[in-house]
């Protein structure tokens, strides 16, 4: 069983949502990647989304754009990130790691070459923001051959037909973008999110995580009552931005711990599913 499936199975048994922090790999520098992963896991991460920086992050708000710029200035590249994950796997063979980024760095490496190297490094899933399901034929095939889960997005504007399209291809989990706009935008309407999750679950048994706009532990708790995973991105990246480079991992961990408390508090509120 994959690390992602094993994690969701374990959490389902204790009725807790997965806590999924997002950080940009190489922010503040590539040397900080293993320490960052270590700190996030120590502070309650169940799955880690590791952003691959790109020069043109079209779907991201200012916070994650700046993180990408810092990581690129520090010399971060895709091959380097795969190496860092491989290194980290020597000390942690359990926590699922999902790479999240844009198509071009992966296409430049070559889709099949990337899939092979990602597998070898211990990557469990990959979400390419600008690979929608209709452009993902070769992509899904390459990941499938390597045994890596293709993660897809759904949004408040996704039609029933598009939900079905994603449901046919998605493995690992589906990432529901809880609001219109870019990462780090305003607050979300939890009731709207809950209604949409019910629609998605009507079409697939793949776990559904929720992200974009979860900026405080209270919102995380509200979402964790019904979602399979809660993704925290910009709020953690803000903390990294404010920290001295050598304090970044510790501060990211500290803020993640407050979200973990929110997710834990939701266990009692959660109906058995």
């Amino acid at each position: 069983m994959s690390r992602i499936a094993a994690t969701f199975d374990r959490l389902r048994a204790v009725r807790r949502a997965a806590l999924v922090p997002f950080v940009t790999a190489g922010d503040p520098s590539p040397a900080h990647i293993p320490g960052m992963l270590r700190s996030l896991v120590a502070n309650g991460a169940d799955v880690i989304e590791l952003g691959v920086p790109f020069s043109d992050p079209m779907a991201d708000g200012p916070t994650i754009q700046r993180a990408s710029e810092r990581a690129l200035r520090a010399g971060t590249g895709l091959a380097m990130i795969l190496d860092a994950v491989k290194q980290y796997r020597r000390e942690d063979d359990n926590t699922p790691i999902v790479l999240m980024g844009y198509a071009n760095p992966i296409e430049h490496m070559g889709v099949a070459a990337f899939a092979g190297r990602a597998k070898e490094s211990g990557v469990d899933g990959v979400l390419v923001v600008d690979y929608p399901p209709e452009e993902s034929g070769a992509w899904v095939e390459a990941l499938g051959a390597a045994g890596i889960d293709p993660i897809f997005l759904l949004s408040p504007t996704s039609s029933q037909a598009r939900i079905d399209l994603v449901a046919r291809l998605a493995k690992g989990y589906i990432y529901y973008v809880s609001l219109k706009g870019v990462t780090g935008a305003a607050n979300i309407d939890t009731a709207d999110v809950e209604r949409m999750l019910a629609r998605i679950r009507g079409r697939t048994s793949v776990p559904v995580g929720v992200g974009f706009g979860i900026r405080d532990p209270e919102t995380a708790r509200a979402i964790a009552r019904f979602a399979d995973a809660v993704v925290i991105g910009s709020r953690i990246v803000e903390e990294i931005e404010r920290a001295e480079p050598d304090q970044a991992a510790q501060r990211a961990g500290a803020v993640l711990a407050t979200f973990r408390a929110g997710v834990d508090a939701a266990v009692g509120d959660r109906a058995s599913r």
Binding site: M58, A103, P132, E134, E135, L153, S155, T157, S158, V177
Partner: peptide
């Protein structure tokens, strides 16, 4: 019909924009 010129073109944008493009 899907906006491809051979291997080029297409609709390589995030899910959040798909409905608007449709």
């Amino acid at each position: 019909a899907t906006g491809h010129f051979g291997p080029y073109g297409g609709t390589f944008v995030a899910e959040t924009l798909q409905a608007a493009l449709e």
